[in-house]
Design a protein around this nucleic acid. Structure first.
Lengths: 160, 160
DNA sequence: ACAATCAGGACTAAAATGGTCCTCGTTAGC
DNA sequence: GCTAACGAGGACCATTTTAGTCCTGATTGT
């Protein structure tokens, strides 16, 4: 239902944790303890984040990870892209010419618009914001609160 | 990767097809043929759409389905809500107080903002637009084209 | 009565997701 | 130069979700 995976969610939690102490080098195990996410999972995620260039790793004794870029320079969109591939609401909204029904269905174009709009909101959120580092939580304008009221609560208590 | 399910995609294709001939009553099989989606799947989807109130059904001989409301009055968001449950980027972005890490992680709040933003774009797209019925395809402004360029193509040719 | 058509499920196959574990390479400290 | 603490890279498995089929009824025009 238009959601990001738990793993990606965890990744943002990890990055956010690191963003709060920019200088520090974090061992995988330490981050696991700090975030309460399984150690093996944290390790796996950090490796991915390293390959994607979000964190810099140091091997060997006293090694660990640290943010490769300032938190302001990392957008939610880039994290999503790295961990889940590019945002694509439907299969054919990622590009055109991949749907043999395109001339008849017309639907693809509209989804592409939606897709871009989503992508834009993702670009506008930085890791610094995700980590709650800048300016504090802005009040939600009335319209947003109204939309929010339409949401039913969903089960499950997970990190994010 | 922030995507809607194939079934939901199909559902929009079905609704869009019906929206193009508002008066007509469509038999499930006829829609299946028209859209090239499996008959059993179409039938299942229409039943869901009926329960959700998007279409009105007539039983018996020469029965079928027709749109219950004008296409302009059906938003993409409502379709998504009906078929996949409410949009929630992360588990705890659907509401608050469901994440025991919330005081420490701060991430939830930011996701909620993203979530609302996505939801808003979904509200702004009507079935009429999805069906390509109003005003033709608007030109994409420059910024959107630029963002789009950042998307890698993805495999798979499916209806949408 | 009968054939077309929707209603409501049960069921299954396939794929994505979340998570663990093992082996190896690297490096600082002794 | 050993050794212990660390990351790199996968293989692997369990569970859940998703997609799709099929069957058994209930309705209704002809």
């Amino acid at each position: 239902m238009i959601r990001i995976s738990k793993l990606t969610d965890y990744a943002t939690v990890l990055l956010a944790a690191m963003a709060r102490e920019p200088g520090r080098r974090f061992a995988s195990a330490a981050l696991a303890q700090q975030t309460q996410i399984g150690a093996a999972t944290v390790s796996k995620l950090l490796k991915q984040l390293q390959r994607a260039g979000f964190v810099h790793s140091t091997r060997g004794l006293h090694g660990g990870y640290q943010l490769a870029r300032p938190a302001e320079a990392i957008s939610a969109a880039s994290i999503l892209d790295a961990l889940e591939g590019p945002v694509a609401v439907t299969d054919c909204s990622a590009g055109q010419g991949q749907c043999e029904l395109e001339p008849t269905c017309h639907v693809g174009r509209a989804w592409q618009r939606v897709n871009l709009s989503i992508r834009r909101s993702l670009y506008e959120v930085s890791l610094a914001q995700l980590a709650g580092l800048d300016g504090g939580t802005a009040r939600l304008p009335a319209m947003e609160r109204e939309i929010k009221a339409g949401l039913r609560a969903r089960g499950g208590a997970t990190a994010s």
